[in-house]
């Protein structure tokens, strides 16, 4: 009996999550309740404050400032001058290099986005079939490149343009080519090389999320499926595995999409900055060009805003599509 009596007050102090749902038609008491909620939440606001101050300062405010600045002409020295849609019309109508950058970025995103997402899933799926020790080993092998820092410079040696580059050396010795190919200086190849190395580096956080998601699938579901007539691994994958992993699949999609639009460092490291005839120029390197070299901050902000729109728009669209799968 005593225990029952105690439960009431505990519920209401410890479980504010439930309490919020109680509806109160009176407007004044609503205000009061809001105030008391704010008061009760005081400790929570204090706990969140340090993170949120830094987060606002370096993420939220910059996004807003960037949107705002994209309508100005600004060089960091003189006062900003309002130019309306001027930056955007210049960007889309008269900046040929931006068009190349945009095209390259879209090519990168369309190829590396889906391919890296698929690779993350397929490798995680096969690795999950292995015994725990080998599984741990293979996870390290596939995940290591994404955290190995600057090791992708090894690819510079492989794709080096002279006869001593490993790929050239190999192809020449086997007689497939007679003269060395300038892998990183020839417009024909450079984009492909950057895509390859980007893919090599792209099995990151989403790969781990998929491995984790696969391990938590309820095995009784698989057994029940077998009773219901699932015969092979492909049916199991489609009817049981994928639907059970939906949250991880959504999470992985966000990370891979954002990454696939942000290709820049690898392009600069492999193809140079600027690359030959802008063959590996991306929206991000274009942004760096105007932001950190030419100091046309308003124009660079317009580029950043376009990039922001591209990333956010694609993410939203894909989230919507993925949520529909299997419902």
């Amino acid at each position: 009996m005593q225990a029952e009596q105690m439960e009431q007050p505990i519920e209401s102090t410890v479980y504010p999550k439930k309490e919020v749902k109680g509806n109160n038609p009176n407007k004044r008491s609503k205000m009061n309740r809001f105030k008391s909620e704010l008061k009760r939440g005081k400790h929570y606001y204090i706990l969140m404050a340090p993170y949120m101050i830094i987060f606002s300062l370096f993420t939220v405010v910059p996004v807003i400032v960037s949107l705002f600045l994209s309508f100005f002409s600004f060089n960091m020295l003189e006062l900003p001058q309002f130019v309306g849609w001027g930056n955007y019309s210049r960007l889309f109508l008269s900046d040929d290099v931006f068009m190349i950058a945009l095209k390259n970025t879209l090519v990168f995103a369309v190829i590396t986005g889906p391919l890296s997402y698929l690779a993350c899933f397929i490798f995680a799926w096969i690795i999950n079939e292995l015994s725990p020790k080998i599984r741990a080993f293979m996870t390290v092998i596939f995940y290591a490149p994404s955290i190995a820092g600057n090791v992708f410079f090894i690819w510079l040696i492989i794709f080096s343009g002279d006869a001593y580059g490993y790929l050239n050396g190999f192809l020449m010795r086997t007689g497939i080519i007679l003269e060395p190919i300038q892998w990183l200086r020839d417009e024909q190849y450079v984009l492909g090389v950057v895509i390859l190395v980007q893919l090599w580096l792209s099995l990151g956080t989403s790969f781990l999320a998929f491995i984790a998601g696969l391990q938590t699938i309820d095995h009784s579901l698989v057994e029940a499926g077998a009773v219901d007539g699932i015969k092979n691994r492909w049916q199991e994958l489609w009817y049981i595995t994928l639907p059970s992993m939906k949250p991880q699949l959504l999470f992985g999609a966000v990370l891979q999409i954002t990454q696939s639009f942000a290709v820049a460092d690898i392009s600069i490291a492999l193809a140079g900055f600027p690359s030959v005839n802008y063959a590996a120029h991306t929206v991000v390197t274009h942004l760096m060009d105007y932001g950190t070299i030419r100091f046309e901050m308003g124009y660079a902000s317009a580029i950043a805003t376009v990039l922001f729109g591209l990333m956010l728009g694609t993410n939203m669209l894909i989230q919507k599509l993925l949520r529909k799968v299997g419902t």
């Binding site: 960037s66 942000a262 901050m297 990039l307 956010l312």
Partner: peptide, 29 residues
Amino acid sequence: KYKFPGSSAIFRVVVLSLMFSPHVTAIPN
């Protein structure tokens, strides 16, 4: 663990910020 005024909005902003890379904010930064 708790629901308080602004909590879900704050979390939504954090999720939204996963959807673009830090390059976007480089200049104002």
